[in-house]
Amino acid sequence: MLFLIFAMLTVAGAVAAMSLRNLVHSVLALTVAFAGLAAVYLQLGAQFVGLAQILVYIGAVAILIVFAVLLTRDSEASPLAIVGSWKGSGVVALAIFGILAWAVDHSAASRQSVLPQPEATMQQIGNALMLRFALPLEIIGLLLTVALIGAVTIAMREKKEMR
Protein backbone atom coordinates (compact mmCIF):
# COMPACT_ATOMS: atom_id res chain seq x y z
CA MET A 1 0.00 0.00 0.00
CA LEU A 2 2.66 2.45 1.11
CA PHE A 3 4.77 1.22 -1.77
CA LEU A 4 2.00 2.09 -4.21
CA ILE A 5 1.81 5.67 -2.96
CA PHE A 6 5.57 6.14 -3.24
CA ALA A 7 5.62 4.48 -6.66
CA MET A 8 2.88 6.76 -7.93
CA LEU A 9 4.70 9.79 -6.52
CA THR A 10 7.89 8.73 -8.27
CA VAL A 11 6.24 8.10 -11.61
CA ALA A 12 4.23 11.31 -11.45
CA GLY A 13 7.39 13.26 -10.65
CA ALA A 14 9.28 11.61 -13.48
CA VAL A 15 6.52 12.20 -16.03
CA ALA A 16 6.21 15.82 -14.96
CA ALA A 17 9.99 16.27 -15.11
CA MET A 18 10.08 15.06 -18.69
CA SER A 19 6.98 16.84 -19.97
CA LEU A 20 6.82 20.27 -18.31
CA ARG A 21 7.79 23.24 -20.48
CA ASN A 22 9.51 25.30 -17.82
CA LEU A 23 12.94 23.88 -17.07
CA VAL A 24 12.96 24.86 -13.40
CA HIS A 25 9.58 23.18 -12.94
CA SER A 26 11.11 20.12 -14.54
CA VAL A 27 13.93 20.07 -12.01
CA LEU A 28 11.52 20.53 -9.09
CA ALA A 29 9.41 17.65 -10.39
CA LEU A 30 12.60 15.63 -10.70
CA THR A 31 13.32 16.18 -7.01
CA VAL A 32 9.84 14.81 -6.25
CA ALA A 33 10.74 11.69 -8.24
CA PHE A 34 14.05 11.38 -6.38
CA ALA A 35 12.31 11.80 -3.03
CA GLY A 36 9.74 9.15 -3.97
CA LEU A 37 12.55 6.77 -4.88
CA ALA A 38 14.30 7.50 -1.60
CA ALA A 39 11.06 6.63 0.21
CA VAL A 40 10.88 3.36 -1.75
CA TYR A 41 14.46 2.55 -0.70
CA LEU A 42 13.64 3.30 2.94
CA GLN A 43 10.59 1.10 2.71
CA LEU A 44 12.67 -1.72 1.25
CA GLY A 45 14.93 -1.50 4.31
CA ALA A 46 17.89 0.22 2.64
CA GLN A 47 18.18 3.11 5.09
CA PHE A 48 21.67 4.22 4.15
CA VAL A 49 20.99 4.20 0.42
CA GLY A 50 17.70 6.07 0.86
CA LEU A 51 19.32 8.84 2.87
CA ALA A 52 22.32 8.97 0.54
CA GLN A 53 19.85 9.31 -2.33
CA ILE A 54 18.32 12.39 -0.70
CA LEU A 55 21.70 13.86 0.20
CA VAL A 56 23.31 13.36 -3.20
CA TYR A 57 20.42 13.63 -5.65
CA ILE A 58 18.30 16.34 -4.04
CA GLY A 59 21.07 18.14 -2.18
CA ALA A 60 23.69 18.08 -4.91
CA VAL A 61 22.54 16.91 -8.34
CA ALA A 62 19.25 18.83 -8.40
CA ILE A 63 20.94 22.02 -7.23
CA LEU A 64 23.70 21.54 -9.82
CA ILE A 65 21.07 21.18 -12.55
CA VAL A 66 19.25 24.26 -11.29
CA PHE A 67 22.46 26.28 -11.51
CA ALA A 68 23.04 24.99 -15.04
CA VAL A 69 19.46 25.94 -16.00
CA LEU A 70 19.94 29.48 -14.76
CA LEU A 71 23.33 29.79 -16.48
CA THR A 72 21.95 28.67 -19.85
CA ARG A 73 18.59 30.36 -19.98
CA ASP A 74 17.27 30.55 -23.49
CA SER A 75 14.97 27.57 -23.47
CA GLU A 76 11.91 29.33 -22.10
CA ALA A 77 11.55 31.22 -25.36
CA SER A 78 11.99 28.26 -27.70
CA PRO A 79 8.68 27.36 -29.35
CA LEU A 80 9.43 23.70 -29.92
CA ALA A 81 10.34 21.75 -26.81
CA ILE A 82 10.69 18.37 -28.47
CA VAL A 83 12.89 17.10 -31.27
CA GLY A 84 11.58 16.53 -34.77
CA SER A 85 11.83 12.76 -34.66
CA TRP A 86 9.71 12.43 -31.53
CA LYS A 87 7.32 9.84 -32.98
CA GLY A 88 10.08 7.36 -33.67
CA SER A 89 11.59 7.97 -30.23
CA GLY A 90 8.24 7.38 -28.59
CA VAL A 91 7.82 4.07 -30.42
CA VAL A 92 11.31 2.98 -29.36
CA ALA A 93 10.62 3.88 -25.72
CA LEU A 94 7.26 2.08 -25.70
CA ALA A 95 8.77 -0.99 -27.33
CA ILE A 96 11.50 -1.09 -24.70
CA PHE A 97 8.93 -0.80 -21.93
CA GLY A 98 6.94 -3.65 -23.50
CA ILE A 99 10.01 -5.89 -23.64
CA LEU A 100 11.02 -5.04 -20.07
CA ALA A 101 7.52 -5.63 -18.69
CA TRP A 102 7.25 -8.92 -20.54
CA ALA A 103 10.64 -10.02 -19.23
CA VAL A 104 9.74 -9.07 -15.66
CA ASP A 105 6.43 -10.89 -15.88
CA HIS A 106 7.90 -14.08 -17.32
CA SER A 107 11.12 -14.36 -15.35
CA ALA A 108 11.55 -17.01 -12.68
CA ALA A 109 12.87 -14.46 -10.18
CA SER A 110 9.46 -12.83 -9.84
CA ARG A 111 7.88 -16.02 -8.55
CA GLN A 112 10.19 -16.46 -5.59
CA SER A 113 8.80 -16.46 -2.07
CA VAL A 114 9.39 -13.30 -0.06
CA LEU A 115 12.30 -13.59 2.36
CA PRO A 116 12.27 -11.87 5.75
CA GLN A 117 13.75 -8.38 5.94
CA PRO A 118 17.54 -8.69 5.65
CA GLU A 119 19.74 -6.91 8.16
CA ALA A 120 21.80 -4.01 6.87
CA THR A 121 23.12 -2.03 9.81
CA MET A 122 25.50 0.85 9.36
CA GLN A 123 28.18 -1.31 10.98
CA GLN A 124 27.82 -3.97 8.29
CA ILE A 125 27.83 -1.41 5.48
CA GLY A 126 30.92 0.26 6.91
CA ASN A 127 32.72 -3.06 7.26
CA ALA A 128 31.81 -4.05 3.72
CA LEU A 129 32.98 -0.68 2.35
CA MET A 130 36.26 -0.79 4.22
CA LEU A 131 37.13 -4.47 3.70
CA ARG A 132 35.55 -6.18 0.73
CA PHE A 133 34.87 -3.07 -1.32
CA ALA A 134 37.90 -1.03 -0.30
CA LEU A 135 39.36 -0.90 -3.82
CA PRO A 136 36.13 0.29 -5.50
CA LEU A 137 35.81 2.90 -2.76
CA GLU A 138 39.29 4.22 -3.51
CA ILE A 139 38.53 4.24 -7.23
CA ILE A 140 35.32 6.18 -6.62
CA GLY A 141 37.31 8.70 -4.60
CA LEU A 142 39.77 9.06 -7.46
CA LEU A 143 36.94 9.33 -9.99
CA LEU A 144 35.24 12.08 -8.00
CA THR A 145 38.51 14.03 -7.75
CA VAL A 146 39.09 13.69 -11.48
CA ALA A 147 35.48 14.70 -12.20
CA LEU A 148 35.83 17.74 -9.93
CA ILE A 149 39.00 18.91 -11.65
CA GLY A 150 37.59 18.09 -15.08
CA ALA A 151 34.32 19.92 -14.49
CA VAL A 152 36.11 23.01 -13.24
CA THR A 153 38.49 23.03 -16.21
CA ILE A 154 35.70 22.57 -18.73
CA ALA A 155 33.35 25.14 -17.26
CA MET A 156 36.00 27.74 -16.53
CA ARG A 157 35.97 30.61 -18.96
CA GLU A 158 38.98 30.53 -21.19
CA LYS A 159 41.04 33.59 -20.36
CA LYS A 160 42.44 34.23 -23.84
CA GLU A 161 39.05 34.29 -25.49
CA MET A 162 37.83 36.89 -23.07
CA ARG A 163 40.30 39.49 -24.27
Binding site: Q47, F48, L51, I54, L55, I58, A60, I63, V66, M122
Partner: peptide
Protein backbone atom coordinates in the same frame (compact mmCIF):
# COMPACT_ATOMS: atom_id res chain seq x y z
CA UNK B 1 17.74 5.93 13.42
CA UNK B 2 20.75 3.81 12.64
CA UNK B 3 21.92 6.58 10.32
CA UNK B 4 20.72 9.56 12.37
CA UNK B 5 23.49 11.99 11.47
CA UNK B 6 23.10 11.15 7.79
CA UNK B 7 19.35 11.80 8.09
CA UNK B 8 20.08 15.22 9.57
CA UNK B 9 22.38 16.23 6.73
CA UNK B 10 20.05 14.79 4.08
CA UNK B 11 17.12 16.83 5.36
CA UNK B 12 19.17 19.98 5.74
CA UNK B 13 20.19 19.66 2.10
CA UNK B 14 16.48 19.74 1.21
CA UNK B 15 16.31 23.14 2.90
CA UNK B 16 18.76 24.53 0.34
CA UNK B 17 16.35 23.63 -2.41
CA UNK B 18 13.46 25.44 -0.72
CA UNK B 19 15.61 28.56 -0.60
CA UNK B 20 16.14 28.29 -4.32
CA UNK B 21 12.39 27.79 -4.79
CA UNK B 22 11.67 30.94 -2.83
CA UNK B 23 14.24 33.02 -4.66
CA UNK B 24 13.39 31.83 -8.13
Amino acid sequence: LDAGVLFFFAISSVMELTIFMAGW
